[in-house]
């Protein structure tokens, strides 16, 4: 029993330590992102743009393809039930609302976490193993400023941008399925979609995606800095990075879904 209490206590302390370390990382990032450029310490815009291309533009093909397919699937699944009531026109409503409020932000975040969050961990982890982070510190170059702040800005802009496109593509996928498989007319589909979408749906999805981006970046960076012990450590933290990021994405999703349910 005492052993169990001891283990639980150690686990809780470890988690507290992690929260503290992530909080320090968050504060440092915000300082180097917002305060430092205002005080003349500069910001690595080029690096941020390169990262935006990597996280956003290069994620588009896979996110686009998955979004299209999910749009097709939702429309067909919706038709399975709605067809019994002769209400296939409402496929458009269902696809639009679920794409904007939930599925496009969630799928985009999960794909970017798998593709880029893990890459951030691997990059920073490898740099740590190769003493490159130490080299930056010895040169008087702050690793948060040099590595993290540009990635953070890129991620929090790339995820919402890709999400917006994923929303459109998912609706397009739903249209393709509804029109060519179920037999809904394009005009009806478009009218229903426009009628179904309200400003709050778009806002909900975009706010979620912004926080998903924050979660992906911080988890990726934190796990990267946690790497110990060579290539094996990099592999371990990279896997942990994806799992933690997806878990956090779901938690953030839940929080905002509950919040927007009441607001």
């Amino acid at each position: 029993m005492i052993d169990l209490v001891g283990r639980v206590g150690r686990w809780v302390l470890e988690r507290f330590k992690e929260v503290l370390q992530v909080s320090v990382l968050m504060v440092d990032t915000v300082v180097w992102l917002v305060v430092a450029p205002l005080t003349g310490k500069g910001f690595r815009w080029r690096s941020s743009i390169r990262n935006f291309v990597e996280f956003g533009v290069r994620s588009l093909p896979i996110v686009g393809m998955i979004s299209f397919l999910i749009g097709v699937i939702i429309a067909l699944q919706a038709s399975y039930t709605l067809d019994q009531w002769g209400a296939n026109r409402y496929i458009a409503d269902l696809v639009a609302v679920s794409a904007l409020r939930e599925l496009a932000p969630l799928m985009t975040a999960i794909l970017i976490a798998g593709r880029c969050g893990s890459a951030i961990t691997a990059e920073i982890g490898t740099m740590k193993v190769n003493e490159e982070i130490d080299a930056l510190e010895v040169m008087g170059v702050n690793p948060i400023k040099y590595l993290v702040a540009p990635k953070f800005l890129a991620m929090v802009t790339a995820v919402p941008a890709v999400t917006a496109l994923a929303m459109l593509i998912m609706i397009f996928g739903g249209w393709a399925s509804a029109v060519f498989v179920v037999g809904v007319e394009t005009e009806i589909y478009v009218t229903q979609t426009i009628g179904a979408i309200v400003e709050k749906d778009l806002l909900t999805g975009m706010i979620k995606s912004l926080f998903f981006g924050i979660a992906i970046c911080w988890v990726g960076v934190y796990r990267g800095f946690q790497v110990e012990g060579g290539a094996e450590g990099v592999g371990r933290q990279t896997t942990a990075s994806v799992v933690t990021a997806i878990f956090l994405i779901i938690i953030v999703d839940l929080i905002f879904t509950v919040l927007f349910y009441y607001v």
């Binding site: 490898t126 740099m127 190769n130 003493e131 490159e132 130490d134 080299a135 930056l136 510190e137 010895v138 040169m139 008087g140």
Partner: peptide
Amino acid sequence: RRTMGMCFQGSALLG
């Protein structure tokens, strides 16, 4: 640190 230089064992050049 700007007045110091360091050569690491593995060189630690940014890859």
